[in-house]
């Protein structure tokens, strides 16, 4: 009986969180469509999410591209001697469809999701959000909407950059380590890649950007209990957005490429 009540409690808590998150997302989206808009805040968040995440996303992409080229080459070598030419194709398709958006999403979730939850959480526990309300400023419009818009717009830009850097990483290893011809590597990549490979990755990126900002803001907004509460909100924001990124990645892949 005690065990059942424990399970029931967990399920009810989960459903409560889910309901609150749904209301939070709905409220945020409705405020995205209604003025006033804080464009200065949107621009500042775009710089924070886009520009300042470039180094971490770029480094992740270049090393992923390099590893992918190396692993593909050694993996294909087991099956047939001539399959090395497929390396360029594997690198470009894997990066644009999957690795670019997922790795960029996870890195940004760690960097931006955590900082959003910590900043908004600190504002909550120090009554700064209450202060916004008393100053006739809707906290959703001022804090949440700019982050959602910036996340939605900047993740695709970051992923586009990550795609280019990642393919370049594969190119470096293929040409300078594996001895491929540079021109034919570029030709192979260009010929094999389809526009939809890149577009599907960018659509994923937009969804991931929205989820990262949503989870960061949601966990920060409802944090309580001082420093410990803010710490928990930060952890929850990163963990939940990472899980949602991986879940959404499967769902979107199934929608676009499922047979």
């Amino acid at each position: 009986m005690h065990f059942l009540s424990l399970i029931g409690g967990v399920v009810l808590t989960f459903l409560g969180h889910l309901g609150r998150l749904t209301i939070f997302a709905g409220t945020s989206l409705s405020h995205c469509l209604r003025p006033p808009f804080y464009w200065r805040r949107v621009a500042s968040q775009m710089v924070d999410i886009g520009y300042f995440s470039l180094p971490v996303v770029g480094l992740t992409a270049i090393f992923s591209g390099m590893v992918l080229a190396l692993q593909s080459y050694t993996g294909f070598a087991r099956f047939s001697a001539g399959s090395e030419t497929a390396v360029a194709n594997v690198v470009v398709v894997s990066l644009t469809r999957e690795l670019g958006p997922v790795l960029a999403g996870l890195m940004v979730a760690g960097r931006i999701g955590a900082s959003m939850a910590a900043e908004i959480g600190t504002m909550r526990v120090t009554e700064q959000i209450d202060a916004l309300t008393t100053l006739s400023t809707n906290p959703f419009k001022y804090l949440v909407v700019p982050r959602l818009i910036a996340g939605l717009l900047m993740l695709p830009v970051l992923v586009l950059v990550a795609d280019i850097i990642g393919v370049f990483g594969g190119f470096l290893v293929s040409v300078y380590k594996l001895g491929f011809n540079a021109a034919s590597y570029i030709n192979n990549s260009y010929d094999f890649m389809q526009a939809f490979d890149v577009i599907s990755g960018l659509i994923k990126a937009s969804a991931f950007g929205f989820v990262i900002a949503l989870m960061g803001c949601y966990n920060g907004y409802y944090s309580k209990g001082g420093a410990q509460g803010v710490g928990a909100a930060t952890t929850n924001a990163v963990v939940s957005s990472s899980i949602l990124i991986l879940t959404l990645n499967y769902i979107i892949t199934e929608l676009f490429f499922g047979t």
Partner: peptide
């Protein structure tokens, strides 16, 4: 109604950004 109000919070609640 909020326009009629001013509020001094216990911890000041200044926006640190």
């Amino acid at each position: 109604v909020n326009r009629k109000f001013g509020m001094l919070f216990q911890g000041s609640a200044l926006f640190d950004s």
